[in-house]
Amino acid sequence: MNTLLSYLENHHLIWRGRHPHGAADTQSSGYAVLDEYLQGGFPRHDVIEIDSPCGIGELRLLLPYLQQQETPRLLVFIAPPGLLSAELLLAAGIDLQQVLVLQPESDKDALWAAEQCLKSGSSHGVVMWHRQLDVHQLKRLQLAAQEGRASLFLFRTAQRIKVSLPVALSLQLRPHAQGLRVRINKRRGGWAEQPFTLDMSSHWPELACAPVPDNLLYLPVARAI
């Protein structure tokens, strides 16, 4: 009986309702609200897909997570859409010596580089801006991430997402005046949630609009200006 149960368990044939399968290995994202929704934080050593327009705060969302690590290991950025700012990384507490920026010529090279960085064991995080990824490529990256105990953050833009990938976590980010509007598209061992607002104004006070008091009525003329 016991063996039958464990067999069913191992093959994911038992539906456990809201209880996740085993304790998921997570690490705090640095934002309490997000941690709560993700039940602990970002999954460790796996691939996390982020669907987001550029420039709304998507990279800032990751910085607290990328900053925390026990032993100094590399942080690799692959094909960022601009020159990565040293000041921001330093301000976030990231050691610049451990940062690598790769600008591969082709998508193929980018994937190869990501796999090498992940499985090397000498990098703890890889952030990649990438266009199109197939399921088998993702599987390889996942295996590499587990082998080298590293996390891969994959930035994609909505127009380019065609296939749904079996990632550990898929987030959709949309702009918001105080931070980000986050929607969890997919989470291993969890459910898709309603979109929620992640207030980042405590981390980045300059990058938030002052909240509009709800008892305020604009005069029509004033609004037009």
Binding site: E70, T71, R73, L74, Q98, L100, L102, A113, Q116, C117, K119, S120, G121, S122, S123, E147, G148, R149
Partner: peptide
């Protein structure tokens, strides 16, 4: 420290 990969950072850089 449980690291499984066995490539040093410098080796990774030379490879890349």
């Amino acid at each position: 420290d449980g690291r499984q990969g066995c490539v040093a950072a410098e080796q990774l850089v030379s490879l890349l």
